[in-house]
């Protein structure tokens, strides 16, 4: 293994041990999607077939892929909280004085967030099937890759932002301030096709919108679609940009 790969692995292992020792996160991570499925999903049954809904699919076929996008987004958002604790306890400072690669220092926590997305995502995918979710196996695998990239974007961003802000209050207000509009404007809850034009236009500025469109295609097994291509291009480009930016923050942070 190259130095970089092994450094990333050791730093990821530290974070995985941390999650392993505080297993409450799995309850939190599962509660959001399961609550959406239990308390919002049933409302959709009555309006399936309305304009904007693809014909021949069940409410869950449309809804579950969108919920997985919310799970991916949420898995990365929390990264900043640990960063702030580790700034206070000096852990990040200590790690930054080792010759370890700055990208590896960032990827440790970011890849942990990918794991904490993939595990509940698989649970939700399986748990929803008896209730009428019929996902395509290959499509689901590609979907998990796309959404892991989304988790990487959000987690790297949250990591770097908290390095710069250094305080929980400002971080919390930015994170919660973004979460709701991004979710509402992604078409997760209801297809934006049934909304006014301005909403559909505005949604194009929201990366989650592309992820949700592609997620629905992928779950149905339509892998090589335009929506999927666009989503990989948008999320992939964002991942490259946020990782570059966040690594630079780790290199010279005023931390």
């Amino acid at each position: 293994m190259s130095t970089f790969a092994s450094q990333t692995w050791w730093l990821l292992q530290r974070k995985l041990l941390e999650s392993w020792r505080a297993p409450a996160w799995i309850v939190v991570a599962l509660s959001t999607p399961l609550l959406y499925l239990a308390l919002f999903g049933p409302l959709l049954n009555s309006i399936v077939g309305a304009p904007g809904f693809p014909p021949g699919s069940s409410a869950l076929d449309i809804f579950v892929p969108g919920v997985l996008v919310i799970v991916a987004f949420g898995a990365g958002m929390g990264a900043g909280w640990t960063v702030i604790t580790e700034l206070d306890t000096g852990v990040l400072e200590r790690l930054r004085v080792t010759p370890a690669s700055r990208l590896a220092l960032l990827l440790g926590p970011v890849l942990r967030d990918v794991v904490t997305f993939v595990v509940p995502a698989i649970v939700v995918t399986i748990a929803a099937q008896p209730f009428g979710y019929h996902p395509d196996a290959t499509g689901t695998a590609v979907l998990l890759v796309l959404l892991s990239l989304l988790t990487i974007v959000v987690s790297a961003w949250s990591n770097a932002l908290s390095m710069l802000l250094k305080d929980i209050g400002s971080l919390a207000s930015i994170v919660t301030g973004l979460q709701l509009p991004l979710t509402l404007l992604s078409g997760v809850l209801l297809p934006l096709e049934i909304g006014p034009t301005w909403m559909r236009v505005l949604a194009h500025a929201n990366p989650l919108y592309y992820a949700v469109n592609a997620a629905r295609d992928l779950a149905q097994g339509s892998i090589l679609t335009t929506d999927t291509g666009i989503a990989f291009a948008v999320v992939g480009a964002l991942a490259a940009m946020t990782l570059t930016w966040a690594t630079r923050v780790y290199r010279s942070a005023v931390a």
């Binding site: 530290r14 020792r21 505080a22 206070d88 306890t89 000096g90 852990v91 400072e93 200590r94």
Partner: peptide, 11 residues
């Protein structure tokens, strides 16, 4: 380097 805040990973 042993910083003012210490730096041990407490968990």
């Amino acid at each position: 380097y042993v910083g003012q805040a210490g730096g041990a990973d407490l968990g």
